[in-house]
Design a protein around this nucleic acid. Sequence first.
RNA 1: GGUGAUAUAGCUCAGUUGGUAGAGCAUCGGACUGAAAAUCCGUGAGUCGGUGGUUCGAGUCCACUUAUCACCA
Length: 300
Amino acid sequence: PTAVGKSDLCLNLAKKFQTEILSCDSRQFYQEMNRGTAKPSSEELAEIPHHFINNLTIHDSYDVRKYEEEALALLGQLFQKHGVVILTGGTGLFADVVVNGMDAIPEVAPEIREEIIQEYQSKGLTWLQGAVEEVDPEFYAQVDRGNPQRLMRALEIWRGTGLKFSSFRTKKKIKRPFEVIKIGLDRPREELYKRIDSRMDQMLSEGLFEEAEGLFEKRELNALQTLGYTEIFDFLEGKYDKEELIRLLKRNSRRYAKRQLTWFRRDPLIHWFHPSEEREILAFLANQIGLNPPKVATQL
RNA sequence: GGUGAUAUAGCUCAGUUGGUAGAGCAUCGGACUGAAAAUCCGUGAGUCGGUGGUUCGAGUCCACUUAUCACCA
């Protein structure tokens, strides 16, 4: 989860293994978003090569599939130089796609999605539900019906391909040409929340508010539909006062961490550690990879 | 010391003419296949400050009591 202490640990691991880091954090991609995304510092970035940080502009349109392609291509190169590469970040879906792949679903013209969004906004959720039920009853039976994004996705596939969204969803895992060892980091809830709260204070004192203010005109962009930024945009529109703003920033960050944990907890292959257990993590990794554990451990 | 007010869910409070309790916030759990820091679904909990009384029945009325706050000395 966010603020648990991923960056520090991964930096140390990367040094031990003399390798590079791939980020799978869907907001650290963007060059314009710095204060609110907890990117590694420029010193840290200089120390160890990081990928997928500052690789996009907020004006770029990007999605998981593109990330999958780029990450796999990059991994192909990195594995020629390194035996081990570190992938780290809190965007569960993106990490999952690198590890397990994703069903091949044809690309759909962006105009179709635009059109569906417009239609949904004027006709409402009931219309959307009816439309999906009609074209893809199998998917409709499984989907969370209150979730417009899911419903619109199914509809855009239907309109773009003439085939049911459910017909593409095999959920088969793709075998990658590398092995994956999953490490999960967690802390007692109270401890995590304290870190989240104080990190938000720190972000604000380092200029998050000013950064968001500067991006206000562009707030409709997808990249800026982001925790930490949207709350400030709403404040700037006069929806609440400063005290409430800070309360919401912290609360929503806590909720985000909870959602992340829900996502990761369901993966039985994750080995969980407290971030302070660096020695144990190294020993565990060395053992999994087949190195001599004591040798690695003594280098601490 | 005197007078008055308040005491109900973790917090702020509501509770109509007495029929064993609710709302917001917080919390907690879950979903997730091309928007994912997004989007959505669900949730528990209170010996109504304490004791006694009136009543078929009291958070609601009465007495005493404890705590807090305000004002007056």
